[in-house]
Amino acid sequence: MLSEERIETDGRTQRDRSGPKGIIVSPPVASNRPDTPVVFDLADLEVFYGTFRAVRGVTMKIFKNEITAFIGPSGCGKTTVLRSFNRMHDVTPGARVAGGLRYRGAELYAPTVSATEVRRRIGMVFQKPNPFPKSIYDNVAFGPRSSGVSAKADLDVVVEKSLRSAALWDEVKDRLKASALGMSGGQQQRLCIARTIAVGPEVVLMDEPCSALDPIATARIEELMRELKSRFTIVIVTHNMQQAARVSDRTAFFTTEIDPKSDCRTGTLVEYDDTTKIFSNPSDERTENYITGRFG
């Protein structure tokens, strides 16, 4: 499908070419899907590490019960933007977020906002499966216990439900007390998803969740994402363009701009649209070059 597109678009000459600063944000109504409520509303978001500006000028809206994919070359700020959604930058010394970032209308970086409360609603799955060195049960029960659930019966219910949602229950129901570190990589990542779901979040952020997994485990996670879409809003960072094309409803393409004066690399959003549009008829030349494999 992609290669067909490549042939078709190779002959393009009078394509709309935006300048290096032009960010094309097509209105999301272009799709035939019904519009869902806005979950994240970014207005000219910037992220700094110390004095270094890692990301600038990200303006976009992320919609409820959709899978939104962030793609782009390494160092373009995809993960940096993702980590600003659940205030994970708070624990990185020197990291600072500027610009507007609203979650269902509420400013995420307002001084009264508790990062702990934010993270209970916006969970995160990391690139490398990172289960705690505890039992499978204790891993899943960790979040609910942190939120004050202590009754064994309640925890049992949450653990089973979460493991079922992550399509892991049948594999582990007889060894819930075994160490999570004894599982395979794919199982560990599904355990991390179950652990995130157990908190009862509204959004699940996934930072390259399949990059450490083999194709079969990847397929299982993708299937899982499609199932979970009805209950959660999912934002996924991926290096794998086929993955973005397979699972996501909308895709955002980021790239790196190099300041010719200071040689400083800053990531920025280039194009954000329906996934089908991005992969078949992108508006920006840089997006097209990237998805057709001409750079990155």
Binding site: G123, K128, N130, F132, R195
Partner: peptide, 15 residues
């Protein structure tokens, strides 16, 4: 103690 364990815990809304 690897930092990814701390991050995993923070990401679950743990203080």
């Amino acid at each position: 103690v690897p930092n990814h364990l701390r991050e995993a815990s923070y990401a679950l809304g743990t203080s």
